[in-house]
């Protein structure tokens, strides 16, 4: 290697070191503002909703970004767990953490069933199979009496944590959910950076080679699928806890589409991308009406005022733009700009 190349290597290492220390300070900033948020007048429920979607997107990314599997059925775990959580909270009056555990358990089992079937086929078929099986779950939830049909489950009580900490106040719920989401996020980061995560990376990069080196890749993929489904179910249970309802929209495939979009916008295979994507997409969905009015005012085009009713269309347009010219997502592009060597 020439001296120049070495120098280039060193300097890019330095840059990544700086980036690392920067990302540490960034996480501190984000963490502090999250801890203080309820005191500076931010509506905690909105933040929690975003956090739940951020966790959902991170779990989804564990598959698409770090294993190379596109699941199109994650709504089944997310929305399904919300129903399970809601049902047990409502009719059995159990402590919140037990409800969450039941929701996650449901996600894990369903993940095992769907995952075992879907890994029998590769590539695009995998996506279609997960989509179809999740649709089946949707229909089952639509028809089963306990889900309340089209109305969904309303008025899910938050119950008590460990049986004695009431979660009635948004503030207590806020810190509880924040804590759980943070822990889950750290767990995902660890999984990605574990010996197991290395094999997942290898499978994503070249599955036949991983097989030929003696790894039973189907088993690795199935474990990744179950893990991802469980974390998605955790996100779904938390969302039901926070908002107090579970509806069919969360089980429908359009929700699977949403989580794909969040991950894609933020950056597939990056740790922070899905979080950023979730923030953006949830905010967009919340504020799109206002954005429409603003655009109508600026451009004078009346049509923009109806934008509030056209969330799916706007989502679709973002999808198209992302796929055509923005595949690395925000974080992906950012890292590429700052770390040209990679």
């Amino acid at each position: 290697m020439s001296a120049f190349e070495k120098e280039l290597g060193n300097s890019s290492k330095n840059i990544s070191k700086i980036l690392k220390s920067k990302s540490v300070s960034w996480s501190l900033v984000v963490l502090t503002s999250l801890l203080l948020a309820p005191f500076i007048g931010v509506y905690p429920v909105l933040i929690l909703k975003i956090l739940c979607f951020a966790l959902f997107a991170c779990s989804f990314n564990l598959l698409i970004g770090f294993t190379g599997l596109l699941s199109f059925g994650h709504a089944a775990f997310f929305g399904g767990a919300g129903y399970i959580f809601g049902y047990f909270m409502k009719s059995w009056g159990i402590p919140a953490e037990i409800g969450i555990i039941l929701g996650v358990g449901f996600g894990a089992i369903l993940g095992y069933v769907i995952g075992s079937l879907a890994i029998k086929r590769q590539g695009i078929y995998f996506a279609m199979i997960t989509l179809a099986l999740a649709q089946m779950v949707y229909f089952i939830f639509l028809q089963t009496p306990f889900t309340g049909g089209e109305d969904g489950l309303q008025g899910i009580p938050r119950g008590k944590l460990f049986g004695f900490i009431p979660l009635d106040s948004d503030l207590v719920t806020y810190y509880f959910v924040l804590g759980v989401v943070l822990l889950a996020f750290l767990a995902i980061v660890r999984i990605v950076n574990s010996p197991y995560g290395q094999i997942l990376r290898a499978i994503k990069e070249n599955e036949p080679r991983a097989v030929s080196l003696g790894y039973d890749t189907n088993r690795f993929k199935l474990i990744a699928f179950v893990t991802s489904a469980s974390f998605s179910a955790l996100a779904g249970s938390l969302k039901a806890l926070v908002l107090g309802f579970a509806t069919l929209t969360d089980v429908h495939w359009t929700m699977s589409g949403s989580v794909i979009l969040m991950t894609l916008v933020g950056g597939l295979g990056t740790l922070t991308g899905p979080i950023l994507g979730a923030v953006l997409i949830v905010m967009l969905e919340n504020k799109i009406g206002e954005i429409g009015f603003f655009l109508a005012e600026v451009t004078g085009i009346q049509w923009f005022e109806t934008l509030g009713q056209s969330v799916p269309m706007v989502t679709g347009i973002i999808f198209i733009i992302c796929v055509l010219s923005f595949r690395q997502g925000i974080v992906g592009i950012f890292t590429r700009v700052c770390r040209p060597g990679r």
């Binding site: 999984i191 950076n193 574990s194 290395q198």
Partner: peptide, 25 residues
Amino acid sequence: MTVLENVRIALQRKLGTSYHLWKSV
């Protein structure tokens, strides 16, 4: 992956920790 990581994937199997999702890389 880096060249070193490529070889390490192959070596990793004999450590028997390839399913350990809680360990550090």
